[in-house]
Amino acid sequence: MEDLIIFDNVTYRYDSDGAALKPAVSNLSLKIKKGEFVAVLGHNGSGKSTLAKLCNAILIPESGRVTVDGTDTADEEKIYDIRRKVGMVFQNPDNQIVATVVEDDVAFGPENLGVEPTEIRRRVDEALKSVGMYEYRLHEPHRLSGGQKQRVAIAGILAMQTDCIVLDEPTAMLDPKGRKEVMQAVKKLNRELSKTVVFITHFMDEAVQADRVIVMNKAEKIMDGTAKEVFSHPERLKALGLDVPAAAGLSHELKKRGIDMPDGILDNESFIEAFERINFEGNNT
């Protein structure tokens, strides 16, 4: 598959009155393919959010290069092309609502792009249907739940027909139901609409649903692989201030006690299946 976003030896440092700060992202090289669902994990201050903001020219590398579909994000004239390709959803749903009616909020993006009114209508309806918020199109956004607000924010990005959505801890402020709703919407737009997704989170049970997991630590990428690969190192992740999903952690603890649990257990279903098999074999030897 073709690469959509390429980080080539990127370093970024926040400016603090000229004081020499440590880089937030240091010598990062990374390729995100079209249609990929990538989760990014890392402790607070590891550089995750900086990585996210470098994806669509909110931040420009101090050295190195970020390209989106071949376009350098440092090219100021192309900034709108880049943001048309890569959209962002942030942590706090209340900070990204601009209108007083849900459908107006979703229409804000395409309106600014100068899209025809009939086309805007079509896109807004389609986007709201994709995230399961169509029936709320005439509601006031500030009266929605957190999960609903985040889905409206995602619809706003979809209506701009971006290829890629970057979500920076979109579920951090949500209740369990809201988290599930957002996760479902994100998975749907990746699997059914083939959108590229970069998903930053502190929740391991969300990260396991991605095709690929990247772990950041002290401004550097230190792990990069499938969820199964990354979560098979619980001790290493713990040392990095992270965790593993409950099923993976439990499976690892049983292994330490001498039980022959297979590798790559990430969810309850596969845990129970493996546990059942071991118990069955144990009872028959």
Binding site: H43, N44, A172, H202, K238, L242
Partner: peptide, 12 residues
Amino acid sequence: DEPCAGLDPAGR
């Protein structure tokens, strides 16, 4: 109120 929101697992 939500003292741990947004913290990484170790910070939490």
